[in-house]
Amino acid sequence: MIRIDAIWLYEVERTAASLDGKQRLALRQQQASPAAQALHKWLQTQRQRVPTGGATAKAIDYSLNRWSALTHYLSDPLVPIDNNWVENQIRPIALGRKNWMFAGSLRAGKRAAAIMSLIHSARLNGHDPYAYLRDILERLPLQPFSRIGELLPHLWDSAQ
């Protein structure tokens, strides 16, 4: 009997995490792919039993309409099973969106967005945001315009 629950698919991914690309793909094809196919068949069967227009029907339709995207990870060993990492990275922005509406003006809102982009880019590049901002704000008045790009987080060198 094939397990068709999402927990099983994540268990397969935990095992696959320590494998190289070829091994990960083989494991996904051997264990996760049959489970995903069984889940797809089950969703199709359940959709026929559920009345159109309800929340359950919408949820099943959502999954079925995006099935190729949901299962793309099964054919590409570099693709993760979900996008939780990205969701966690953008969560602070999404949570603060309403607060930033009160930045004072459109111009102030654009400035706040630029600063937030620099802070998060600094984090993603492994820098301490405070040290990064302090350093570039100290350098900025003397930095030639033609070399302003050197202050971007992915090019920044704290040793300068």
Rank of each mutant, 00 (worst) to 15 (best):
M1G: 09
M1D: 05
I2R: 04
R3Q: 14
D5T: 01
E11V: 11
V12I: 13
A16N: 03
A16K: 00
S18N: 15
S18H: 13
L19A: 11
G21Q: 06
Q23L: 13
R24K: 02
L25M: 08
L25V: 07
L27F: 02
R28Q: 08
Q30F: 12
S33P: 15
S33L: 15
Q37E: 05
A38P: 01
L39A: 05
H40M: 09
H40A: 12
K41V: 12
L43R: 01
Q44W: 08
T45G: 08
R47F: 04
Q48Y: 12
P51V: 05
P51T: 11
P51C: 07
P51N: 10
T52I: 10
A55T: 11
A55S: 11
A55K: 09
A57V: 10
K58E: 10
A59W: 02
I60Y: 00
D61Q: 08
S63E: 07
L64P: 01
L64M: 02
L64E: 08
L64D: 08
S68M: 09
A69S: 13
L70T: 10
T71Q: 07
D76R: 00
P77H: 04
P77A: 10
L78E: 10
L78P: 12
N84P: 12
W85Y: 08
W85L: 09
E87K: 04
N88K: 06
Q89N: 10
Q89T: 11
I90F: 06
R91A: 03
R91C: 05
R91Y: 05
R91I: 11
I93C: 08
A94R: 00
G96Y: 02
R97T: 06
W100F: 14
A103I: 08
R107K: 12
R107I: 15
K110F: 14
R111M: 13
A112Q: 06
A112W: 05
A114N: 06
S117G: 10
S121K: 02
N125I: 14
G126E: 02
H127P: 08
P129R: 00
Y130P: 11
D135I: 14
I136K: 01
L140E: 01
L142N: 11
S146T: 09
R147Y: 15
R147K: 15
R147I: 13
I148T: 01
E150S: 09
L152A: 04
D157R: 15
S158T: 13
A159M: 04
